[in-house]
Design a binder for these strands. Structure first.
Lengths: 205, 205
DNA sequence: AGCTACATACATTCACGTATGGATGTAAAT
DNA sequence: ATTTACATCCATACGTGAATGTATGTAGCT
């Protein structure tokens, strides 16, 4: 039994990984610290050495996956080319879908966050993430509205709702249906079609 | 303290109501039988008289709300006018949205089912409900495809995915955003726009 | 030697399930 | 009508296990 610093960090990662899998599969509440430890190949002693309690693991998972991702979205939206916001949304949305489809880690975090029974902390995270997304969509679509790129039938805010629904809906339905359809290709196709229908003179060639 | 049969049935309903509210607000796992009983104005003794355990309440809630609703959907889809499936989908979808927006009970059940950490039973229910919806959508859109009503760009199955995403997405986003937009009016508007974009020569007047 | 990185052992809490008691309604018997 | 017998409906009390948190032991690194 060797215990250098590298080993310690590795068991920490093993615990995180185990928690992520178990949380995603059985939910947070139905996952025991004992299960996490055993899956990670250690005991609860190791767990309590690295983490204060169960919520601390959740927090660490959030910090290492969701939070930086959120920062990326924010950053990208600020550096976005605003001459054609709809094209930007389609492009980055499509890219996100294909990345998401290939990244088991993101998928598990999405399941965890979406099934997290509402404690104060997780609720705050969810709210933060979604409010952030709303802001981005609203900003970009307001810009598109000013540029006269949107259909007359819907206001920019309504288009924002429509895109939020389509985007989050794709992720949720894909996971819920146990990956019943190809998220990357079909997602891109539907996103393209939907965004086209939101443009002024949308469907007309 | 009177205890005729009517009183007993009323306490049963009070327990169901309390459980529904607590499940929707804090999740199933984080809700205690003690909380349910106290909220219903009784003790755990009364609870155990009417129900075997926590899953029995969940089952009763499902039977009284979700199950009959599912039967309605199935029945309606079989009696549907198949000359214009898209119009039927828009019409019944819009009606469902407005009913859902007004029915707190349905909203709570949707939250409960959507946040239910995957036990064997709830997972089976969710699968059943969604498979049922899939069947309905696929049947109707296959029919629409045969009638040549769908856009060339998407297959009937792909259109079915698109509509599932839009529909479930509307419900989820509305609840998640804490009713940030008018589900009935805006939902109808977006559903109409989206379905129009799925028709052959969709956006063109 | 002292600290790190765990394992092990122990204490505590909390929700669950059950057993029991008691109050009330209800039907039959007289 | 009154009493008796019994079932219903619910509260209270108790036992139990499981998960948590903490305290202690201990082998290896530095």
């Amino acid at each position: 039994m060797r215990r250098c610093k590298a080993d310690a960090e590795q068991t920490r990662l093993k615990i995180l990984e185990a928690a992520e899998m178990l949380f995603a599969e059985h939910g947070i509440a139905r996952t025991t610290l004992e299960q996490i430890a055993r899956t990670a190949g250690v005991t609860r002693g190791a767990f309590y050495w690295h983490f204060k309690d169960k919520t601390a693991v959740l927090s660490a998972l959030y910090e290492r996956t969701t939070a930086p991702q959120l920062a990326l979205i924010r950053e990208a939206s600020e550096q976005a080319d605003l001459t054609d916001p709809l094209a930007f949304l389609e492009c980055s949305g499509t890219r996100f879908l294909s990345v998401f489809a290939a990244d088991k880690c993101q998928q598990r975090m999405h399941r965890i966050m979406s099934n997290a029974a509402m404690t104060e902390e997780t609720a705050a995270w969810l709210a933060e993430a979604n409010v952030e997304l709303w802001r981005v969509f609203q900003r970009l679509l307001a810009r598109a509205g000013e540029a006269g790129q949107l259909t007359d039938e819907l206001t920019p805010d309504e288009v924002a709702v429509s895109l939020m629904v389509m985007f989050n809906g794709l992720l949720n339905e894909w996971l819920r249906s146990d990956r019943a359809f190809p998220l990357d290709t079909l997602g891109a196709k539907l996103l393209h079609h939907h965004i086209a229908s939101l443009r002024r003179n949308g469907g007309a060639a």
